[in-house]
Design a protein around this nucleic acid. Sequence first.
DNA 1: GGATGAAGGTGGCATAGACCAATAGAGGCG
DNA 2: CGCCTCTATTGGTCTATGCCACCTTCATCC
Lengths: 273, 273
Amino acid sequence: MTAGDSGAVLKRERVRDHILQLIESLRPGDAIPSERTLCADLSVSRPTLRAAVDELVAAGLLVREHGRGMFVAPEKITQELVSDSHGMTLPQASGTWSSRLLEFTTIAAGARVGRKLSLSPAADIVYAARLRLVDGAPMAIEHLHIRADLVPALTAQELESGDLYEHLRERHRVQVRDAVQTIEPTVVSQAEGRLLEVPHLSPALLFERLTNDTEGRPVEYVHSVYRGDRYRIVSRLTLDASHTQGTPPETGFIPGMPPGTVAQWEAAPTTPR
Amino acid sequence: MTAGDSGAVLKRERVRDHILQLIESLRPGDAIPSERTLCADLSVSRPTLRAAVDELVAAGLLVREHGRGMFVAPEKITQELVSDSHGMTLPQASGTWSSRLLEFTTIAAGARVGRKLSLSPAADIVYAARLRLVDGAPMAIEHLHIRADLVPALTAQELESGDLYEHLRERHRVQVRDAVQTIEPTVVSQAEGRLLEVPHLSPALLFERLTNDTEGRPVEYVHSVYRGDRYRIVSRLTLDASHTQGTPPETGFIPGMPPGTVAQWEAAPTTPR
DNA sequence: GGATGAAGGTGGCATAGACCAATAGAGGCG
DNA sequence: CGCCTCTATTGGTCTATGCCACCTTCATCC
């Protein structure tokens, strides 16, 4: 009995559902049987079982601990949305942020970054990689690329403490004004997973931000990866009159965010456990 | 030479980097050597090579086509941020949206949904699952839960065409006013992958939205999964005076989104190919 | 000439087995 | 008694191999 034995009922799925059932009968933190035990119970090979477990780990339902075993994940993040009848209190950003500098050099921009910053590929930029932590726990990896000629005296100290934008304004006479930011989902690589202390291929948010100063010059290009299990974006949407009373376009409307919507953002690290 | 031969340099990583290099020398759509060929070239087993490729597929750099081969992904979504020096034109939402109704029933709310909508678990809700398409291509799966007593005459037709909020207002006398929405990264399940036509475990965005009407009553609870390779969130951030001149808080600031930031959203499906 | 179908290549799924690395616990030694 | 080491267990990685399903191609047949 191998892969494609008619029916499209993958062995992985059967195994996954079995473990899922197992999880539901347990509480967060409880241990589940070892890989080898489950293999025997379900009559599947270990790679197959691991493939099934991989899904559950990626989905955040299970955590693995090398040498110890597998455990039901402490919380399901999708169960956290608060909505207390009237006011809708947001779990406002909590915890104290800190940074650990991973790298800090001045290098040539290169083609890709140069294009984004409207610079020659040979122009110097300050490149810094920071691990951002909340209450000591890793939350994000930030890759900053800043025009070197604008901040010739930028120090490592300034990247490790305080608000970078404030340092830019106070010490370097660079006043940031606006930015364009894109957000998309991604998964963490092995190296990123190690830094963020999450399993390989865990969901994450990828931010790309291009910041301009008051003169319209591109100042920095930031590329960040935020942990998906601890970070979420919360927005309050208000449907304005032009939409609720006007003629909404049949085509081109956006289900996720209705047109004419005014949004207020909060980006909040969610508290663990 | 097996797994942990000192050095922590995983074979997978070496293979991945090799393929990455290969990708960079090619253009989108180009084919890369077959799995078996690469195995021979790199002297690794096929499962190992597949594990490396899995990462690249999950990251959206490579696409696999059963029976045909592996190809460089049509676009690298991380290369699409536009920034034309002055105005910053956004690749505004394009394409025409349509819906395919997957399910449409009236059922009891249950504990979880009931809690979100401030209803008794036994109260009836209209549940609808929709596949949202852009120019015919799957973009998202939406699970809607609407208070049944507010929309007793909701039809399948209304869920398949036009703006739902408009139908609610015009036909059902329900005027939506605001909503709280959370966005977090996730990965698609096997079933979701099939519907969205993306590989299993691909990155995706999970939206949860709770919508209220003008009287403050919760109307609908929506749970949606958007393709990560075709959908992204674009925001324009403006740093206001209170931040650029005031005293930014040392702790509690949010790197992804500076405090005092005014954001204007666009949620844009990215064009394929 | 156009449809048919067999062959070979490709990715997809699964197996069995091996060794490494991290952990926890049992046992021995000081 | 306390510390250490040794061992069993668990997850982590990799190999080698097989079969299946899908796609393309090309030779064949009508």
